[in-house]
Design a binder for these strands. Sequence first.
DNA 1: AAATTGCCTTACAGCCAATGTAAGTTGATA
DNA 2: TATCAACTTACATTGGCTGTAAGGCAATTT
Lengths: 224, 224
Amino acid sequence: MKTIAIVEDDEFLLEEIINTFESRGMNAVGVSDLKNAVREIIKLSPDLLVLDLNLPYQNGLEICTAVKSKINMPILILTARDSLGDEICAINLGADDYLTKPCHPDRLIARAQRLLSTYEGSLNLVRAGMLTVDSVSYKVSYKGENMVLPETSGKILLTLAKAYPETAAKEELVKTLWGTGEFLDPNILEVNIARLRKSLSEIGADSAVITVRGEGYKIAEGEV
Amino acid sequence: MKTIAIVEDDEFLLEEIINTFESRGMNAVGVSDLKNAVREIIKLSPDLLVLDLNLPYQNGLEICTAVKSKINMPILILTARDSLGDEICAINLGADDYLTKPCHPDRLIARAQRLLSTYEGSLNLVRAGMLTVDSVSYKVSYKGENMVLPETSGKILLTLAKAYPETAAKEELVKTLWGTGEFLDPNILEVNIARLRKSLSEIGADSAVITVRGEGYKIAEGEV
DNA sequence: AAATTGCCTTACAGCCAATGTAAGTTGATA
DNA sequence: TATCAACTTACATTGGCTGTAAGGCAATTT
């Protein structure tokens, strides 16, 4: 069953929204600890997040940005702030839809279900710079071009993508890929980085993996 | 560069929308032949479709349904019909967003770009029944579970998915997979169907491939 | 009920992509 | 220029994928 998390400080409205979802057979959970909303959301890992903007302690847009940078999850903004500026801002920050209160339950449900079905199958995408990596199939997308990486290359790229925009340390990479690298060829990582780059060159993304001398590797920054 | 197709019978408004997109560096094309809109859209294969509802010859919702059943493409409804019923209907038919005219260009652009980026990486998904198949990586999704199929199994499932909800004939499958099957083991398809089913059983979807005795195979129907 | 046809199951051997190891080369830094 | 980190190329091994083959099961027909 799909789980929907709701961040809303008005308790009556929260109850109403939860009922709306539950009456349609979905599992709705209110995020209670508004001070640590992001942590609670990550912990819940719902299939959809419904988010108010006017919140105590923290702005809804901040939560939106923080959540999106960690997990690829659809976010539906539901707010009383009917301003075009807010809407565009929210959407550019990664929100997937923007509805204004009061909102008819049927509309909310329809929009929510659309998001759920759109995200189906793309739930395990990790975005980093201009790359998109699927953590299950190791499919990489770059400027509309796709390819599937072999397992080792895929795991490396995934580790780099999760560390993005930071640099992934060499030891961390070796540890993630091969466990405690006691009896391993010290060259193993470099060889496989080269293989990854060679694969990525097929879709023109070979300069996406950057060497940070003495530290490790990272993915090139750049907006999509 | 991203291509956006626009279906709109009001020529002035069409021009305005095209300008809105082109001034942001996108490639916008008006669909001129409203009688054969669907065929023209399929031929164009744009990255996004902007669709009016009130059209001569054909209802916008019909176009929406027809296009979605053929290609996985984001569709943005832009209409003067400000009715909740229409909106919910459109969204349930597969539309990804619903905006009412008049619409501020910035809002249109923001929504369009959001859809483009959401669909990035999931462009090659083919839906069939309760299954979703990625035509590049052969990743299958079923009830939130995923797995990656080997090439032969993947190609078979993809052929079945494209034929959905029809039955794919045995000869067609053999031809698609192995070309003219002159010197082939006549058993080859059955063995690989069995392998496909065995793989799918890992995610509980083994009954998704149905045998049609004397004809071929099809994917089980069923809403998501 | 027996026969026939179509589909399924299991086993096996060949093949190829992917991988770890190794050794030699290039390039940056001090 | 010396040194070390990173890159390149080559090679042998391995394991999963694949087509072939043969026997069994089930549905349809006579």
